[in-house]
């Protein structure tokens, strides 16, 4: 499992310790942000170059940490750096290998709930099942559930993974996510909803069968 820091308060606690050069603070920073930064890089440039891109971004972060003025939050700054690095690589790749557009890439991948759930008048065919574990705490207390969740998240399209990470886990505002990923707010809202619906279906299956 990852760390238990609250992403909304981590910045103010971490920054002074980073500036003082405290080793543990660097570990916390990387533990907390490396994977989310990788999700952002993957969404922009794809999986193959994402890790390299994040490593480059970290170097840039270290180089500029002392000049960080706090005009944005630390996490917005980090995600902007990694996104800029990924976009710059993407531009270079485009000139040498052709285009890779970042867009809503799963219009037809079953992102919505299945059509069989609806009557022709748009009402539910059957009521959504009741969930025995009806709180986040109860669900997350099952190791099997956490495993299913990580597996489902890992299999999301990269743009959905990135917006879900930034919005739900990092608690960022839509406008910040738009700036980081270079997508419109309406696209981001669609991506978030489709990603949540996929997790919804996974929870539903888990509740019914105990499996992913």
């Amino acid at each position: 499992m990852g760390n238990s820091l609250n992403p909304l308060t981590v910045d103010s606690e971490l920054l002074p310790r980073l500036l003082a050069g405290e080793k543990k603070a660097f570990e916390q920073l990387v533990r907390h942000y490396h994977q989310p930064m990788k999700h952002v890089a993957q969404a922009i440039i794809g999986d193959a170059q994402a890790e390299e891109c994040v490593q480059e971004a970290w170097i840039s972060v270290m180089r500029n940490l002392q000049e960080f003025q706090g005009r944005s939050t630390l996490k917005t700054w980090l995600f902007t750096i990694v996104a800029n690095e990924a976009k710059s690589r993407l531009r270079k790749n485009r000139s040498s290998q052709g285009k890779r557009e970042m867009s809503i890439n799963d219009q037809h991948d079953g992102g919505l709930l299945e059509s069989g759930r609806w009557q022709t008048n748009g009402h539910w065919m059957e009521a959504p099942g009741t969930w025995h574990d009806n709180s986040p705490e109860m669900l997350l207390s099952h190791e099997d559930f956490r495993h299913c969740l990580h597996k489902t998240l890992a299999n999301l399209p990269e743009d959905q993974k990135a917006v879900l990470t930034l919005r739900d886990y990092q608690g960022m505002e839509l406008v910040e996510i738009c700036n980081i990923l270079g997508l419109s707010a309406s696209n981001i809202r669609v991506l978030i909803h489709r990603a949540r619906l996929k997790i919804y279906r996974m929870v539903e299956r888990f509740e019914e069968t105990g499996e992913c």
Partner: peptide, 10 residues
Amino acid sequence: EVLRRNPPPT
């Protein structure tokens, strides 16, 4: 809420 509380694996 599950997504808010679930850090990505590290």
